[in-house]
Nucleic acid binder design. Structure first.
Lengths: 195, 195
DNA sequence: CTTTGATCTGAACATACGTTCAGTTAAATC
DNA sequence: GATTTAACTGAACGTATGTTCAGATCAAAG
């Protein structure tokens, strides 16, 4: 097998994606050049094409990976049968998962319009699956009488928007810890959909 | 005074801003060139510099104008002394105002990172004033015992994030009218901060 | 009917873009 | 120690960028 000038394919590949993630999040996809990503990793621009067919794929792969990780982590959560407990699990999970990877979250919400049509469809489909999970919890709660929402699907999007908003102000070194943030948001979520 | 080739400064100026608004919203600030804006208006790129000193000012002016209009419209609203009524007024106002100008809202949330530092400060200050208005309503309600929120400032940001989320799915030709949307969100807002 | 001056064109400026590729480098294999 | 080949360089490709500006245009003013 072949070797490198101080780093491996196994090492450089992830480093390229990490640099792209950080730069796309900070400056936006369109504002970041391949040369800038390469400089961050210590390469010439041409070398990036050993790791991605093109710039668009770099963006899509980051977003796809984020959504896959999200759905996988969601399914790994306990799924209480009581709707209120299921909602609490979802709320705390969403806050934690998103607060832990602000760059990927930022990109996934901001760069949708820079995806080519086919790539956009894929990401939208994954996002919808995530929303459906919450909408189903709400519907079960409505059926059993513990929740009172007239439009479960819209309520799901409203709650997700509220919870993702944490990322606009939360800083790990800030006044509130993540568990404390959960204690601020969970009562609001619970009451918002209460019967 | 001077005249034009079929259009005026008074007419071309607004058209430039309208074109920039639409294009920035659709493709993003960094992805839209001055030539593209010019083409949309029927000009050569150089002529745009009769209406803006540079591209950055074009973005900043759009965002500043949006925030000014927002704060002015907010202050023109009735300000009920009862916190619950004040919250309802705010909620319905926010939904309506934002749903009516999706492009300006989109830009104001997505292009913050493309503002130069000094311009960013200005927009952030205006946004904070808007958030403070809602936080004050919540604080008054906590004092009078009708609201039960542990962190009024965070609760304000949470509610605003939830309400602005309407823009991600609402379409005027969709199933729900704007008044119907208000009837879905207002109960959630009211209950979320209830004592 | 000449003058005026705001408005706009068209070309140019230096710089940057995404992508390709022939050729160099050097670690691993035999 | 010769061979192999993945990893990378450096230059080039055509095209695009934001901005400037001398000069053309033409409605209104005198």
């Amino acid at each position: 097998m072949a070797r490198t000038h101080g780093s491996h394919s196994d090492i450089t590949g992830p480093r390229v994606r990490e640099a792209a993630l950080a730069l796309f999040a900070r400056h936006g996809y369109a504002a970041v050049s391949m040369r800038r990503i390469a400089t961050e990793v210590g390469l010439q621009a041409g070398a990036l094409y050993n790791y991605t067919p093109d710039k668009q794929s770099l963006l899509f792969d980051l977003m796809k990976q984020h959504m896959d990780t999200l759905l996988q982590a969601l399914e790994a959560q306990p799924q209480p049968s009581q709707p209120v407990r299921a909602l609490e699990t979802f709320t705390r999970f969403h806050i934690r998962f998103h607060a832990e990877r602000p760059e990927a979250v930022f990109i996934s919400y901001m760069e949708l319009r820079n995806l080519e049509a086919a790539n956009f469809e894929v990401i939208e489909g994954l996002r919808r699956r995530y929303e459906d999970h919450l909408a189903d919890i709400l519907r079960r709660g409505v059926t059993s009488g513990v929740f009172g929402v007239s439009e479960p699907r819209i309520a799901a999007m409203a709650l997700i928007a509220m919870l993702t908003g944490v990322n606009t102000w939360f800083r790990p070194e800030g006044r509130l810890s993540l568990p404390e943030v959960e204690e601020v948001y969970w009562p609001m979520v619970r009451k918002a959909v209460a019967a």
